[in-house]
Design a protein around this nucleic acid. Structure first.
Lengths: 331, 331
DNA sequence: ATCACATGCGACAACGTTGTCATACGGGGC
DNA sequence: GCCCCGTATGACAACGTTGTCGCATGTGAT
């Protein structure tokens, strides 16, 4: 900037005015400065600018997701990006992989970078560690899981309702031996889906057979192995509820592998690309990811714009999408 | 920091030494400072720190991808993240949507933020605008498409080879009426896949019937519509090559919709989750995304670490994955 | 001709941090 | 008791930028 000023024969401050499009610089001088900028390949330094400006806006937000390569996380990221792009805000994206320590260090790292706001799909059970930040005015929105120990905005899905719908649907098709495949029960959403499924069955005067419940499943490969094992038992289930998208994918593989795709009913939680073109089409409980992303972006940017109203907790009700796999009747 | 120094009764510089874990501070003073840091909730400001330090490392890299919600882009992002995480580097991720102007403005915005390096899956045809930056030492790696007009590292896939393999495979199954469905021919990879497919046919003494070629397809919905139209013609193709993942998905839908899944052969370019559990399994030309991501990360961080060797152009050869859909014989 | 006032520009300090150098102190060797 | 040296700490300037204020110059009204 100093060089630009020297080349244009003006003061530093005048260059600053030009690059910031401030009023009060004559067209002649503006042109001289712009020529110098081009000639020297000068690029404005946002960090220094933000440092000097009091308002401390870095035009950057952080997004801590479960795994950016998972379709749920990446669709959410994309929705946030669309909103951020309009305001010239960049996104620092990271994956947490359900590791609490990773969440802690990444939050720390993002705050050091002075992000304007934070979107978190938490991997920790409690987020008390953020209390001071929120009190200090950090715009913070939780997604997929409600915050614990700190009062901040959240956008979540009614997992209980979704799992109940799945239970009712399968019972309605005449099933009574239904297997449940789920993720780590330490994960709030996973626990809710299990309890929602149980209460859905209870409402139809049934109980979930604990021998048909497998949890702590971390990948589609594990899900496939788990279901194969369950199907090999003496009295196998006639229907399966897979409580997460990767788990459902593993279940599809297991059924395919054992030639039971058209014999054992399957309902998944969370839609994913191509679920409709499987054979049979996969019946799922769908969370409207686009909508979730939009709500998250709306809340986050409202906070960044200074909204200090009490935290909002938006709950989106998922819907059952019937495609065939969930409508198979018990043999 | 000033407050911390005052509370601990030491100088600014000493606080700086403590937060940077510099040697030469007595344990007593270190403890006092750390207590003050905790008490005041002080957080180190990376931007100011980088400003003052000469080396200008922001520990941030930019990733400009085609669309972060597409499985190819998001897998790449994830691979880069894994490498970046080890070095405490954060990633600014954005989608370009094949819009050249978006690439330009996003590059500008990332450079203003003084990223340490840039990964670009270009949407522009030429990247001359980056010549000065590269000459100035900007670590820059292109992925999926080779740079034009600027000499920088790249990691690409041998699209010609992949498309030729697909052509040979389909011809080998006895097909002669083969449709080609592709993306915008302005996109380098799309053009290569078309010409590779043509030369693959030529090597078997066949020519691609221009009436069976549909390009400029932007979404799976468009691909589905295009293939339905082609299949409805008087002499429909007996096989289809879909030159991109979303195009292949649309093609699967079209075949399903017209009940031709087991009658018309289909080969896709680029694997995606679940392609193996379709009915029949989708035969694809697979690009090893993980490997691409690792190579990209390796190159990028080597440049950031000061590697000034001539640009490397890594070309990864894709392989045909046989799953059933590509082995259907002409009726 | 005088004054008030608007316009265009520059000097200077400050944002939060760290590199450089200086200083104070204690200990060991003679 | 003297000198030298290593160790711990601090004062100060500087990184690239912008907010504040002040100073010229020009304009229009009186």
């Amino acid at each position: 900037m100093r060089d630009v000023a020297a080349l244009a024969g003006v003061s530093l401050k005048t260059v600053s005015r030009v690059v910031n499009n401030e009023a009060g610089v004559s067209p002649v001088v503006t042109a001289k400065v712009e020529r110098a900028v081009l000639q020297l390949g000068y690029r404005h330094n946002l960090a220094a600018s933000n440092l000097r400006r009091g308002d401390a806006r870095t035009s950057t937000v952080g997004a801590l997701l479960q795994d950016v390569s998972n379709s749920f996380s990446s669709s959410l990221l994309r929705a946030l990006e669309d909103a951020a792009h309009q305001r010239d805000v960049a996104i620092l994206a990271s994956s947490l992989d359900e590791e609490p320590s990773r969440e802690r260090t990444l939050v720390e790292s993002l705050l050091r970078r002075r992000v304007d706001g934070l979107l978190i799909m938490p991997a920790t059970e409690r987020q008390d560690y953020l209390v001071d930040e929120v009190r200090g005015g950090l715009p913070l929105v939780f997604v997929d899981r409600r915050p614990q120990g700190v009062d901040a905005d959240s956008v979540t899905v009614d997992n209980i309702s979704g799992a109940r719908q799945a239970a009712h649907h399968l019972v309605g098709q005449g099933h009574s031996r239904i297997a449940f495949l789920g993720d780590l029960t330490a994960i709030q959403t996973a626990a809710e889906r299990l309890s929602g499924f149980e209460s859905g069955l209870a409402e139809r005067d049934m109980v979930l057979d604990p021998r048909l419940v497998v949890t702590e499943i971390r990948s589609d490969a594990e899900a496939m192995a788990a279901l194969l094992e369950v199907l090999a038992r003496p009295s196998p289930p006639t229907a399966v509820f897979a409580a997460r998208n990767t788990v459902a994918i593993g279940a599809v593989r297991a059924l395919r592998h054992s030639g039971l795709s058209s014999k054992v009913a399957l309902v998944g939680f969370d839609d994913f690309p191509l679920a409709d073109v499987l054979e049979p089409g996969l019946t799922v409980v769908r969370q409207d990811v686009r909508r979730i992303g939009e709500e998250v972006a709306r809340l986050l940017f409202a906070r960044i714009d200074g909204d200090v109203s009490p935290p909002h907790h938006i709950v989106i009700t998922p819907e059952l999408v019937v495609r065939g796999s969930g409508e198979i009747r018990p043999q």
